[in-house]
Nucleic acid binder design. Structure first.
Length: 448
RNA sequence: CGGGGCGUAGCGCAGCCUGGUAGCGCAUCUGGUUUGGGACCAGAGGGUCGCAAGUUCGAAUCUUGCCGCCCCGACCA
């Protein structure tokens, strides 16, 4: 992509309303634009990151055996009357009437609808287990939206639902999602810690929140330091095999959000040096809630013993749009974002120090074409701006690699490459730079 | 929902108390000098001062109502 054709409205000054670094950087880097309280437009750069995150979530859901579908954003109220949640959900649910005065709502979540869809198509325990998910926009009329997309009213969420014949099988589904989440967040360069959590209005008896540690997190958390560097299950993990040992490993050490925190247990189970009390961002939440919806909504299957039993359900959410903020919180410096390659809007920024200069342009065009041909995503700054400005904005948007072409390097037959993550600068021969960077990018994308 | 605050050029703000020509920095446009970490000089364009009503000879400024947004608290991906 040539920057001259792109839409990248960067802000030099920090907008007054942005309180946390991820919000500030998203506004300054031209990723989002606020259209109302808790409502944001995704500008081209932000949209690219959102799509990358979404795709990682999708790949790990598929790998765990979940099946993708898409449910509508607008739902009929009657569905929610069946579960009793139409009244229970309160003002957080955006209620709408259509032209015929039918009561509708903009979905804050989809348990009711997926249960309705499931019961229409499944009759026997032999059809189980099933895991269905979608990645769809939700609307929750939050009392107080804040921190940009971190707590927006409209947000993109992956929600998965599992259906099993009994509790044992249900827990197997829960375990699959547990492992899937560990991998999902790890691939984005995040260390997410599963913590025992309350079940909230969705209900149930088994629940974990996946928390990213960050100073600006909304919840206080307490955990054993040992969780931070625990090895995440590899790509080769067999999701049909026994995952219980992994779950036990990750739940063996103390970790709880403040609602579930037990100071006595914390101090008795965790050595003083390993006690970590911090703040965290919730990026995922998994529940097993059994018959909570299947019973009132009559989602039943024929059981092996004859007769009908309500299916055992779980639901599993990932805040896809929130993850952008969480990733920036974890990867940035004073100059801007430092995207992990897996979610970077582009892999490489190509800087022409002297636009309009024949040899510089020629060298840039050559490298640009070679990188694109190698499947590397390049943002080529072909604008007439001065070098300093180009450096500053590349640092701000935070692409993993910057390749600089200027008269100085050309004389030596070299391009300068900067790694945004560690700031390290190297010189590489002009005819090798594209292939070397392409190789690095490929390795980083193949990780996990 | 309770408490606090804000709304003036694309962005950041001053002006309001004490009513009288709407201003500054950045950005933008033109010309020139520059060009390896957000350049300099000269010139130019850009505003229903959130909306409405009222007070007044006169309102960005005072009064009232409305709308929008932000921050602090209890809920949530």
């Amino acid at each position: 992509m040539r920057l001259s054709r792109y839409y990248l409205p960067l802000l030099k000054e920090t907008p007054a309303e942005a309180q946390i670094v991820s919000h500030r950087l998203m506004l300054r880097a031209g990723m989002i634009r606020q259209e109302g309280a808790g409502i944001y437009a995704w500008l081209p750069l932000g949209f690219r990151v959102l799509k990358k995150i979404e795709q990682i979530v999708r790949e790990e859901q598929d790998r765990a055996g979940a099946v993708e579908m898409l449910m509508p954003t607008i739902q009929p109220a009657d569905l929610w009357r069946e579960s009793g949640r139409y009244d229970a959900y309160g003002k957080e649910m955006l209620r709408i009437t259509d032209r015929a005065d039918r009561e509708m709502l903009y979905g804050p979540t989809n348990e009711e609808m997926i249960t309705e869809i499931f019961r229409a198509g499944v009759r026997s325990y032999k059809d189980l287990p099933k895991m269905l998910y979608h990645i769809q926009w939700k609307f929750r009329d939050e009392i107080r939206p804040r921190f940009g997309i971190m707590r927006g009213r409209e947000f993109l969420m992956k929600d998965c639902y599992s259906f099993d014949v009994d509790e044992t099988a249900g827990r197997r589904s829960y375990n699959k999602m547990f492992v899937s989440y560990l991998r999902t967040f790890s691939r984005m360069g995040l260390k997410a810690i599963p913590m025992r959590a309350e079940t909230g209005p969705i209900g149930g008896d088994l629940s974990h929140e996946f928390i990213i540690l960050a100073e600006t997190g909304e919840s206080a958390v307490f955990c054993d330091q040992g969780l931070i560097n625990m090895a995440v299950p590899p790509k080769s993990t067999d999701f049909e095999g026994d995952l219980q040992p992994v779950i036990e490993q990750f739940t063996s050490l103390y970790a709880a959000t403040d609602e579930m925190h037990d100071e006595e247990e914390f101090t008795s189970r965790v050595n003083e040096n390993d006690r970590l009390s911090a703040r965290g961002i919730e990026v995922g939440h998994i529940f097993f809630f059994g018959e909570k919806y299947s019973k009132p909504m009559k989602a039943v299957v024929a059981s092996p013993e004859g007769g009908e039993v309500p299916v055992q359900m779980g639901s599993y959410g990932v805040g896809v749009s929130r993850l952008l903020g969480a990733i920036i919180e974890a990867h940035h410096d004073d100059a801007g974002c430092k995207w992990p390659t897996a979610v970077a809007p582009f892999h490489v920024g190509l800087i022409n120090m002297r636009s309009g200069d024949g040899p510089c342009e020629e060298a840039c065009e050559k490298i640009y074409a070679a990188l694109e041909a190698a499947g590397v995503e390049v943002l080529y700054d072909d604008t007439p701006a001065r070098g300093g400005e180009k450096f500053a904005r590349m640092d701000l948007i935070g692409l993993p690699y910057q390749i600089t072409i200027g008269p100085r390097g050309l004389e030596a037959g070299e391009a300068e490459v900067k790694s945004r993550a560690d700031g390290e600068k190297t010189s590489i021969a002009l005819d090798k730079v594209a292939s070397e960077i392409a190789a690095k990018v490929k390795v980083e994308l193949d990780y996990a």
